[in-house]
Design a protein around this nucleic acid. Structure first.
Lengths: 253, 253
DNA sequence: GAGTGGTCTAGACCACGCG
DNA sequence: GCGTGGTCTAGACCACTCA
């Protein structure tokens, strides 16, 4: 390890502070423990509160800290591994699915969704809202867009909205044969409604997972799932959720 | 771009500003165009520079803007899709691999890497450094950790380091039969050296992809790849890199 | 050297959770 | 009502790029 040396160009205070705090978290704090408040910490390190906050923001982004207004700053537990892709593809809402259905509505989607579904921009689609909870914590909010052509036989469904309607839409969707799926992950920021569902403030960093479900040679459904970036590690592949715990900043290499 | 309007709303100024700027980017700017400088923009919207910067930071996180010290703020192109997982698993460095080998060294890895490789914490491993370039831009830096037990037959390799040695190590690794692999994605912040390679400042948000390569019933290699979160969309599955372009903030839903 | 974004300060007030 | 983190201000200076 031992890398701390004089540098021709001094690093920013907040960055140095981040390192110092990070090491303190490793050695002197336990998960869930409450840190001193920001004003005290800033005074202790002899910096302005804004500078201290910059360091805390970094650490929060890295999943080391959790801050809550009106409460305080606590040491975060290690990120939870959340399986988002498995070897065997499956429709959303298949059995042993971890999502909770919350709502369903028929409406015209944003243009980007219409384009991905390869439908007209004025064509309404069924949009199922789901949420995902792990270890008692909300980790993701999802909008699942299903064009009417994928579920043509929805007659006899009387529920105009709500979880009952969502179940009916998914049941219809499952009649199609799933031919494939692919996903993309990118960084985003939580809109107000997602933020609320994820128990975060608007603008909080999220990992946006966009999944296309292919059936009958076309995109039969499109999922846009918003995961809390601070608490989640998304796992893909054979052994979803199993213990890798690589440190995302790799301080000690 | 509108002028001095900022009506009193319950939402924070910087958030509203972000929305206003985002809409202006959609309608009044083209990719690569230079925005007015921060001092002018702040004055135009009647806010302090720090507040304006908070809005710009959000937009940069979302991949809408690119800021460079000494130069200015420009409108970013859409994120590039980067394939990081395919249906057919393959060793790193196999043919039609997009990575550039830069270096290789034998050293004791960080504890987290040793644990993931299921080796002793004092055992040295070969660490290959690679970088990935797309469309002329650096998008990722990787450390590939290979325990000595995976490449037992490295005699006759004289190069003590450098790309030549890296090639030799990978060639040896390919003699094993790859049985499986799995990946995890999480948010991190760039260390100084990765930041330099990615042409970003330290602490820049990155997507850290950790991949375990399984051979002979154990973890034969561990890759920790750091992707620029502002410019990349990581794709998994059948049709890596093909055109989905979901907006990560989904403004218009 | 001029102009840009990046860092930092020392304050102020606000919104929220909880007793 | 009090303490917390969240927002905001109006400055200052630094580091960098480029003509």
């Amino acid at each position: 390890m031992g890398t701390t040396q004089l540098e021709s160009v001094p690093e920013p205070k907040y960055w140095h502070l981040r390192t110092v705090l990070s090491e303190a978290l490793d050695s002197e704090f336990t998960v869930g423990e409450i840190l001193p408040n920001e004003r005290d910490l800033a005074a202790r390190f002899g910096v302005a509160r804004a500078t201290l906050r910059q360091a805390l923001e970094q650490l929060e982004l890295e999943g080391r800290l959790q801050r809550r207004r009106g409460v305080g700053t606590t040491v975060a537990p290690p990120r939870v591994g959340v399986a988002v892709g498995t070897e065997q593809h499956a429709w959303p809402g298949a059995k042993d699915d971890v999502w909770q259905l919350t709502d369903c509505a028929l409406a015209v989607p944003p243009a980007s969704v219409a384009d991905a579904l390869e439908i007209g921009r004025d064509e309404p689609v069924h949009t199922v809202r789901r949420s995902r909870v792990t270890h008692g914590q909300p980790v993701a909010a999802e909008l699942l867009h299903i064009p009417q052509s994928s579920v043509p036989d929805l007659s006899g469904i009387d529920a105009p909205s709500g979880a009952a309607r969502a179940r009916a839409v998914l049941r219809e969707l499952h009649r199609l044969e799933l031919e494939g799926q692919d996903s993309a992950v990118e960084l985003g920021s939580a809109r107000a409604d997602d933020a609320k569902e994820l128990d975060r403030l608007p603008g909080a960093p999220v990992l946006v997972v966009t999944t296309r479900y292919i059936a009958e040679g076309r995109t039969a459904a499109l999922s846009v799932a918003t995961y809390r970036a601070d608490t989640c590690r998304l796992t893909f592949g054979d052994s979803g959720g199993v213990e890798i715990h690589e440190d995302p900043e790799r301080r000690a290499s």
